[in-house]
């Protein structure tokens, strides 16, 4: 196993553990915005799609890139906007 892979595995495992710790403290009241907010965070896949652009050089590659970019951008933009819209509705008594 290469040192690079080991480092990646370490990061992944720790991210999972941090995720469990942080998210188990979110109250049930906010579970829907939590899910859509987490959804928006996996929209970071757009960074991966951008990195993919450096290797695309064929027509098929461009088509795949465009579809992936469409999907990822929809995920990240829509996810954050809809989460913000929901959270704006949670108002205090005062």
């Amino acid at each position: 196993m290469s040192p690079l892979l080991l480092a990646d595995l370490t990061v992944f495992t720790l991210a999972l553990l941090v995720g469990f710790e942080v998210i188990s403290k979110v109250p049930a009241t906010l579970h829907t915005p939590l899910m859509s907010g987490a959804n928006a965070i996996h929209g970071v896949v757009i960074v991966g799609v951008m990195l993919l652009a450096a290797t695309a050089s064929t027509t098929a590659g461009y088509a795949l890139l465009a579809i992936a970019a469409f999907f990822a951008a929809m995920n990240v933009a829509g996810g954050y906007v809809v989460t913000d819209r929901m959270l704006a509705m949670f108002r205090s008594r005062s």
């Binding site: 799609v49 652009a53 695309a56 590659g61 890139l65 970019a69 951008a73 996810g79 906007v81 809809v82």
Partner: peptide
């Protein structure tokens, strides 16, 4: 070509996602 594919795909997806979310 890659730049066009990336930019147009991302722009269309971003707009579609934002409209759906709103």
């Amino acid at each position: 070509g890659a730049l066009v594919a990336l930019a147009s795909g991302a722009a269309a997806g971003g707009v579609a996602g934002t409209i759906a979310a709103r």
